[in-house]
Amino acid sequence: MNYENPQLPEGINYSTSHPLKELMILLAGATVIVVVLALAISLAAGWLATKIPFATEQRWVKSFVEQLPETEKAPRHQAAQLRLQAMVDRVAQLQDLPADMKPTLHIINDTQLNAFATLGGHVFITCGLLKKLPNENALVAVLAHEVAHVKHRDPLVALGRGVAVMLALGTLSGLGDGSAVGRQLQGAGLLTALSFSRDQERAADDTLLHTLTGWYGYTEGAADLFDVLANESAKHEPPVFMSTHPATAERIAQMQAALTPGARVPLPAEIVAYAQATVDECAATATDNNVD
């Protein structure tokens, strides 16, 4: 018997493929899985969220709303608040909101241009936006758009989607070992909780147009808000409203298509006066701060 140790060829027990190539292929595969999974979970969670009763939603945000700074007792503010709340109530009536779903309006002392709807039917509008609105039609359009979000349960659906996606991605990233990557993925999930989808915006705009027709009998002035925003973004940094409401051109087109002519109604005097005074005060404090 002959005993020998032959020279074995290299590469029997390992592959010589480049490690970076393997990383790229695996990352691409993982990305596809994550995207598909996130989409599926997001749709399912959004659908489930609408099954939550509105009363439950209100109970969740109750403690948060109680913490809101008791907006000024100034009679000027009270008057504007009451007037806007009355408009919101009429919008809600025109949109056939269920009896238990009552939107509440809050005015924020801020020079930024923004309006948004959140959980529990709470609708916020800034003084800055109130001041820039050219007529009552545009104000009703803004309120109708936000109340439509409440009607469609959009804040809840967005939150449900965001939280579900965040949890799913968090669990998934536990499979890999890089916790930094996991945090990034969770951040991506959280991001989806903060914005409404394009479909949600389109549906809210549809309802807005119906509301304007119900209020005035025509939709003239529905797109005036966008002119204001376009002017502002041309002047300086884009208003916050733009970043939370994407695809503006498409929405303007939708409104132009549904335009029925009519007269623009001026804004109620107390709201104009209130917004003017408050924005001036804000500007004054801002200048003071700059001096410091």
Binding site: L26, I33, L175, G176, D177
Partner: peptide
């Protein structure tokens, strides 16, 4: 990290 992905 690559091994973690490979686990999927």
């Amino acid at each position: 990290f690559v091994a973690g992905l490979r686990n999927l």
